[in-house]
Write a protein that binds this DNA or RNA. Structure first.
Lengths: 223, 223
DNA sequence: ATATGTTGATAGTAATACTATTAATTTTGA
DNA sequence: TCAAAATTAATAGTATTACTATCAACATAT
């Protein structure tokens, strides 16, 4: 029996000025920024609006995060850490490479549900944010310096984890890394398309879903 | 022998206030917005800066485009029209489905070079913009209304064209549309990763490239 | 010669993305 | 338990952005 609220991840310290998990206000910022970004979108989201929503002040939020971009990077790092955790958990004590691949791919491509072990973070909502906003976190002119600062490390770790299992299933396959990144980014995009560009997806049909598409696809590519 | 500057596409009229191809200033706006967005990024790009750069006035640019988002949609529509044109050209008079697939996938995933038939548009630069900025064009809260207005039609047409050829190669394959969208989006992403996140790509190696990765992958999936 | 359309220049507004300062409140720890 | 330290709230202020409005200058077309 696990207690809720006991799941925590270490986040790159350069992403925040003061640890938001260390205070009530900080946790409120995390919780409600997720809800608010989901509701009005990252572009319309401001610290002023967030302050009003949580009954706090704009300037107080600036003491936790330099700007909303850093906050998005923080939330993203948190998300990918959580995904990595689930991936590692899913392959614990599994020896068969192919089975490992299936489980890991499932974790990284499936529909996300709230994880009750985390009190102030709703993973289902956070997943929607990642789908709609994550690419904005790296599609910037600062990507190279921020990459050097390690802001995308967890994301790349998730992809590398998948790439290693791909290489384990078929050591001759020459594109394990590119294939892994295709799956991770592709899955996010498929979930987006499924909601907004229905004419270019097959997932409207009830018996088809993103996870099984990727599992079947990988089996064919690596056979 | 083709004359340069004779390649034109019809763009959704809701994307502009005054046809930029109809005047000197308009063509300057197209040419230099592409160069400027590539240089400083779409986020830092403003009509004021563009005005200064082309020796014109901010307010004059607003007479052509409502805002920079519409300009990005215009440039994107232009780009996808150009890609569609190349795809159709590449499969002219080809009967073999598999050969058609290879050629079409090549067109949609390869490195882009400037097309000299277009005077004021540098496709190589425009391609970089699409790689770095296109997803920002649809990752917005307005995506559904803008989709109804047909702002993403050409993009979806490119994907549908590929999906149809996939279905032609293997009529039993159940995910032709999702696979097609995976390839189109995936290729953009692979080009980005190749430049910025080298640790999760295999394309650093000289004998590997995005186009052949996708061609080989599709062959395996559809066999 | 006059009407029309295009562009340029200037001004102005509301919102954004912050920074700085000071006051009020809470926490802590000696 | 009282004082010091830390945290938060409130307010003000700045530069930039993303526009809109107005009017003058100029070219063109009839």
């Amino acid at each position: 029996m696990k207690l809720p609220g006991n799941l925590r991840f270490t986040i790159n310290e350069k992403l925040f000025l003061k640890d938001p998990e260390s205070s009530d206000l900080g946790r409120k910022i995390l919780k409600h920024s997720i809800l608010m970004i989901d509701e009005i979108g990252f572009d319309a989201f401001t610290f002023k609006k967030l302050g009003e929503c949580i009954g706090s002040n704009e300037s107080s939020i600036y003491r936790y995060f330099e700007n909303k971009h850093k906050l998005l990077l923080y939330l993203s790092s948190w998300y990918w850490s959580w995904v990595e955790y689930r991936m590692l958990f899913a392959i614990q004590n599994i020896d068969d490479s192919k089975e490992k691949l299936h489980r890991v791919v499932y974790e990284v491509t499936c529909e996300v549900k709230d994880d009750i072990r985390t009190e102030y973070i709703d993973e289902a909502v956070l997943n929607r944010i990642i789908i709609s906003e994550y690419s904005k976190a790296f599609l910037t002119k600062e990507v190279d310096t921020e990459n050097k600062d390690g802001f995308f490390l967890v994301y790349k770790k998730v992809i590398s984890l998948l790439a290693n299992i791909i290489a384990e299933v078929n050591p001759e396959y020459p594109y394990s890394k590119s294939l892994a990144s295709s799956v991770v980014v592709g899955a996010l995009n498929q979930h987006f398309i499924k909601r907004h560009f229905k004419s270019i997806t097959d997932f409207s049909e009830p018996d088809k879903n993103v996870a099984s598409f990727y599992i079947q696809t990988l089996d064919k590519i690596l056979l």
